[in-house]
């Protein structure tokens, strides 16, 4: 089983997704930002500024390496070259945590640069677990698996998402990354109860929480359709769901994700401080 104390060295405070334009602010006055997350795929070059900045940041902050392209839910085998690049990065950086997504993004040679959904069946469960075993073995470290934002459902699914993720954690020993915004987005899109989702979630296995902004749209029948855009502030109902999660599961390393229309550092820092205020009473 994933051991939070041993397998995850992220502090139980707020962090942000790293953007190069915030480098100087992070070095000089990070404020409430206590750790950073990077997208692994942006640091797979041979040298230059990206790796030099990352090295300098890693001297000051715990770093979480977050993969977005491994395609753990893919029908085909994991790409051995990509896995080798991830291993190279993790060996070089020795990050405080490594995480990836319950999603797929490649088919054959085509990389679709998105986190695509999976049906929740016994067959996909077996495949995802085999891929996670392979990742954890290759990297010689346990990983966290993140719940997705989804926009549609599969007729062939035979179990709900929380059951599916809980079973993965049980079978592979991986931890879970709970994206509370994704819960809110998926729950709205799928007409689930988000609080019931959190209450059923195996919070003891959660090594990290994500918070981000989403966009609001509607489908052709007028039903709400939320889109996980990471392009704005976290909305109040997501903060409320986050507070419920922390009250129930205790303080967890919490990341503010803002990948599009990236604001100036003080805006991100204020979001981190807001998360910290919710974490404060739960610190032990």
């Amino acid at each position: 089983m994933y051991d939070l104390a041993q397998d995850n060295r992220l502090p139980h405070f707020a962090g942000i997704g790293y953007k190069p334009q915030h480098f100087q602010s992070l070095i000089s006055a990070p404020g409430a930002v206590r750790w950073l997350e990077i997208h692994a795929e942006n640091y797979m070059g041979d040298g230059g500024r990206p790796l030099a900045q990352l090295r300098a940041l890693a001297d000051r902050f715990p770093i979480s390496v977050h993969g977005v392209g491994l395609s753990i839910g893919g029908e085909g085998p994991l790409d051995p070259d990509h896995l080798a690049r991830l291993k190279h990065l993790c060996d070089w950086l020795n990050p405080a945590s490594f995480s990836e997504h319950l999603a797929w993004s490649t088919h054959g040679d085509t990389y679709l640069n998105d986190l695509l959904p999976l049906p929740y069946t016994e067959a996909t469960l077996t495949r995802v677990c085999a891929h996670i075993d392979e990742v954890q073995e290759a990297l010689s470290r346990p990983m966290l698996l993140e719940n997705p934002s989804t926009y549609l459902a599969f007729a062939e699914s035979t179990m709900d998402e929380v059951t599916f993720l809980s079973e993965i954690a049980k079978r592979t020993g991986c931890g879970l990354l709970l994206d509370v915004n994704n819960v809110f987005v998926s729950a709205t899109n799928q007409t689930w109860d988000p609080v019931a989702y959190i209450d059923a979630f195996p919070l003891a296995q959660v090594g990290e929480i994500h918070l981000g902004g989403h966009d609001e749209d509607e489908d052709e029948h007028g039903a709400p359709l939320l889109i996980d855009s990471h392009g704005r502030e976290v909305v109040d109902p997501v903060w409320a769901l986050y507070a419920h999660t922390i009250a129930r599961g205790g303080a967890k390393p919490t990341l503010i994700e803002w990948d599009n229309n990236v604001p100036d550092f003080p805006v991100l820092e204020a979001e981190a401080a807001r998360a910290d205020a919710i974490l404060q009473p739960a610190q032990v």
Partner: peptide, 27 residues
């Protein structure tokens, strides 16, 4: 593709376009 549904069990329609749009916009 068939088998992709909205919460009412209707074909996913515009919901599938989110994935198309995400890919096109990101590229």
């Amino acid at each position: 593709p068939p088998g992709l549904l909205d919460p009412e069990g209707r074909p996913a329609g515009k919901r599938f376009n989110v994935y198309r749009n995400n890919l096109a916009a990101s590229l």
